[in-house]
């Protein structure tokens, strides 16, 4: 019995390690500047994996070695201060080794470079829209009360910065390769979270405030956007696309996006057209 149990625990330990190294399930290739997050995970894996294996092996050994015998008596030892002190220090060191690089990367994550290109990600139940700042590089101010069919982003009409903002129709966003981008995250209803697995970044979108994070895309490609904060029955279907382009392709796409000013004009035309139609 003790041998069986010890072997079973041993197998579970070995099995975990084998699974870790040979399983086909691993993260997607990183496509942004956040490779540092992957490195921190790897470091965490080595440290915690070591602890896991050592402790499990110790348990297996004890189960086999100190199995019950009627003629034996266990050691009587209430505590061992030296040992406990030593373990405390080793653990503290290990924990510090995990924490320090983590905090460094986090510091980068929350410090947005000043020249980052700003893009508004606009979330609603259940889809994505995007807004680019236009030629002035500034996103116009918005207010949820201004939202209407004619003004789907709720841009404040009086704000001149908003006039040249490009509104992306549809849930497909293009990003320029190697240009840092700050996502300004906005939602008009419930919580959402803009998540592209390959970019590693993540931040909740909260109605009433604008949250953000930044990345630099480092690999061209076509990536899926997922909502990563539960937002109601359609949560699982709230997908979008992000495409990282080289300069030429990007410019082509950008030129196709309509500015807010043009859209207002178009809206007016449509309205007049409708009015004319209904007058007839």
């Amino acid at each position: 019995m003790p041998v069986t149990v010890a072997v079973a625990f041993l197998l579970i330990t070995v099995g975990s390690v084998v699974f870790h190294f040979w399983s086909p399930w691993w993260w997607t290739e990183v496509a942004s500047n956040w490779g540092g997050m992957d490195d921190t995970i790897i470091l965490t894996f080595w440290i915690t994996g070591f602890v896991f294996v050592v402790i499990c092996l110790f348990v297996s050994y004890c189960v086999w070695k100190f199995a019950y015998r009627k003629d034996r008596i266990a050691e009587y030892k209430p505590e061992d201060n030296k040992l406990e002190k030593r373990l405390t220090w080793i653990t503290t060191l290990g924990v510090a080794a995990l924490l320090a690089p983590g905090l460094v990367v986090w510091n980068n994550y929350v410090t947005v470079p000043e020249n980052a290109y700003k893009v508004e990600v606009f979330a609603y139940q259940w889809g994505w829209k995007y807004r680019l700042p236009g030629d002035d590089g500034v996103l116009g101010k918005t207010d949820i009360r201004y939202i209407s069919d004619e003004n789907p982003f709720g841009l404040i009409l009086e704000d001149p910065n908003g006039k040249d903002d490009r509104l992306v129709d549809g849930d497909e966003l293009h990003l320029l390769l190697d240009r840092s981008v700050k996502f300004e995250l906005r939602t008009i209803d419930v919580l959402h979270n803009f998540y592209v697995p390959q970019f590693r970044g993540k931040m909740d979108m909260v109605p009433g405030i604008i949250t953000y994070y930044w990345i630099t895309p480092t690999k061209t490609g076509d990536y899926e956007v997922l909502c990563a904060e539960y937002c109601g029955s359609g949560h699982y279907a709230m997908r979008g696309r992000v495409i990282v382009d080289k300069e030429q392709d990007y410019k082509k796409w950008e030129a196709k996006q309509i500015t807010f000013e043009k859209m207002l004009v178009q809206n007016k035309k449509n309205k007049n057209l409708q009015l004319a139609k209904s007058n007839k």
Binding site: M37, T44, L98, P101, Y195, G201, K202, E229
Partner: peptide
């Protein structure tokens, strides 16, 4: 320890 370490939490949360 993965999730508590704020950086590692970003890709893994949710």
């Amino acid at each position: 320890l993965f999730l508590g370490n704020v950086t590692v939490d970003v890709p893994l949360s949710d």
